[in-house]
Simulated scan of single mutants.
Amino acid sequence: MSQDENIVWHTQTVSREKKQVHKGHKPVLLWYTGLSGSGKSTIANAVESKLFELGCHTYLLDGDNVRMGLNKGLTFSDEDRIENIRRISEVAKLFVDAGLIVSTAFISPFATDRAQARSIMAKGEFIEVFIDTPIEVCESRDPKGLYKKARAGEIPNFTGISSAFDVPISPEIHVKTAQQSIEQSVEQIIQYLKEKEVIKL
């Protein structure tokens, strides 16, 4: 008998439905994806601030922050990137189960990993937000100096330079930051949540 056969899912007394009623909004996962420097964390933070103002219960899982704890020790190899996203997908699912509007700001470059994250969520609870920023704009920003290091060969497997980024084919929300401000991007995302009745205001 394998160890897995001795593990049984424990059903909680406080159901997801009760949590949703208690919080006053639907639980969803806003999955921000885009190149380094595209503005994922900036926009995700701004959206969370707006949701907080509206009385929503939220949590933001940022790529760098998670790598300092839960995913400490993982590299940026393709294999570790896959494990990084697998772990964060499972954590995000738990937060959604708790009734929160969860945001994850990760490059998550591989379409298969994003599809896997979507597959473990209930229908309608995974909202892919593609922060579409041209690489030349990302590189001109280079807030952490990573592109400069990647161009110098100091960072291997750097997305957009020496590692691939699979552009989302049909994201729920397509944010084109080269054509609109942060405020407009936030409003676009909030409006989507209102249209889908995630938040009712």
Rank of each mutant, 00 (worst) to 15 (best):
E5V: 07
N6M: 14
V8P: 00
V8K: 14
V8M: 11
W9N: 09
W9S: 07
W9L: 07
H10F: 09
H10Y: 12
T11Y: 06
T11R: 13
Q12M: 11
Q12P: 00
Q12W: 10
T13Y: 10
T13V: 15
T13W: 12
V14F: 10
V14L: 12
S15Y: 11
E17L: 11
K18M: 13
K19Y: 01
Q20H: 00
V21R: 08
V21G: 00
H25F: 13
H25Q: 12
H25S: 11
P27W: 03
P27K: 04
P27H: 08
L29E: 07
W31H: 07
W31C: 02
T33Y: 02
G34H: 05
S38T: 04
S38I: 08
K40I: 04
S41A: 06
I43L: 15
A44D: 10
A44E: 07
S49T: 10
K50R: 15
K50E: 15
K50I: 01
L51H: 08
G55W: 11
G55C: 12
C56D: 02
H57G: 00
H57T: 08
H57E: 07
T58D: 08
T58E: 08
L60F: 12
L61P: 09
G63A: 05
G63N: 09
G63V: 09
D64K: 12
D64A: 09
N65R: 02
N65Q: 11
V66E: 01
V66A: 02
V66H: 02
R67K: 08
R67N: 10
M68S: 09
M68W: 12
N71R: 01
G73L: 08
G73M: 03
L74F: 09
L74E: 04
T75I: 01
F76Q: 06
D78N: 05
E79W: 01
I82V: 13
E83H: 08
E83N: 13
N84Q: 02
N84I: 04
R86H: 13
R87S: 04
S89K: 03
E90T: 13
E90Q: 15
K93L: 14
F95Y: 13
F95P: 05
A98W: 01
A98Y: 03
G99F: 01
L100P: 01
V102Q: 03
S103I: 01
T104C: 15
A105H: 09
A105N: 02
A105M: 04
F106C: 03
I107Q: 01
S108F: 04
S108M: 11
P109G: 08
F110P: 00
A111W: 03
A111T: 12
T112I: 12
T112D: 05
A115G: 07
Q116R: 15
A117P: 02
S119K: 15
S119W: 05
I120D: 02
M121G: 09
M121H: 11
